[in-house]
Simulated assay, not measured.
Amino acid sequence: MIRITDEIELDESEIEETFIRSSGPGGQNVNKVSSAVQLRFDARRSRALPDAVAVRLMRLAGSKLTQDGVIVITAQRHRDQARNRADAVERLAELIRAAIPPPIPRRATKPTKASKERRLDGKAKRSGVKAMRGGVKFD
Rank of each mutant, 00 (worst) to 15 (best):
I2F: 08
D6V: 06
E7R: 15
I8K: 01
L10H: 01
L10D: 00
L10F: 03
E12T: 10
S13T: 15
E16S: 10
E17K: 13
I20W: 06
I20D: 04
R21L: 13
R21V: 13
G24H: 13
G24A: 14
G24D: 08
G26W: 09
G27M: 14
G27I: 14
Q28P: 11
N31T: 14
N31S: 11
S35W: 04
V37M: 00
R40P: 02
R40L: 03
F41V: 00
D42M: 00
R45G: 01
S46H: 06
R47H: 08
R47M: 00
R47V: 03
P50F: 06
A52T: 15
V53F: 09
A54W: 02
A54K: 04
A54I: 04
R59D: 12
L60S: 01
Q67N: 13
I71A: 06
V72S: 04
V72A: 00
R77W: 09
R77F: 03
R79Y: 09
R79S: 04
R79I: 10
D80H: 11
A82N: 05
A82T: 12
A82V: 11
R83M: 14
R83A: 13
N84Q: 07
A86V: 07
A88K: 03
E90A: 14
R91F: 02
R91T: 06
R91I: 03
A93H: 07
A93D: 05
E94S: 11
I96D: 02
R97W: 00
A98Y: 01
A98R: 12
A98C: 09
A98M: 11
A99Y: 03
A99L: 04
A99H: 08
P103D: 07
P103F: 09
I104T: 14
I104H: 10
R106C: 08
R106W: 09
R107I: 14
R107V: 14
A108P: 02
T109W: 07
T109D: 07
K110M: 13
K110R: 13
P111H: 00
P111K: 12
T112C: 04
K113R: 14
K113H: 03
K113F: 09
K113M: 08
A114Y: 05
A114P: 02
K116M: 14
K116H: 10
K116P: 05
E117R: 15
E117G: 05
E117S: 10
R119I: 12
L120W: 06
D121C: 09
G122I: 03
G122D: 08
G122W: 09
K125Y: 04
K125S: 10
K125E: 12
G128E: 11
A131W: 03
A131R: 06
R133E: 10
G134N: 06
G135E: 11
V136Q: 00
V136D: 08
K137V: 14
K137E: 06
K137N: 12
K137D: 10
F138S: 07
D139H: 07
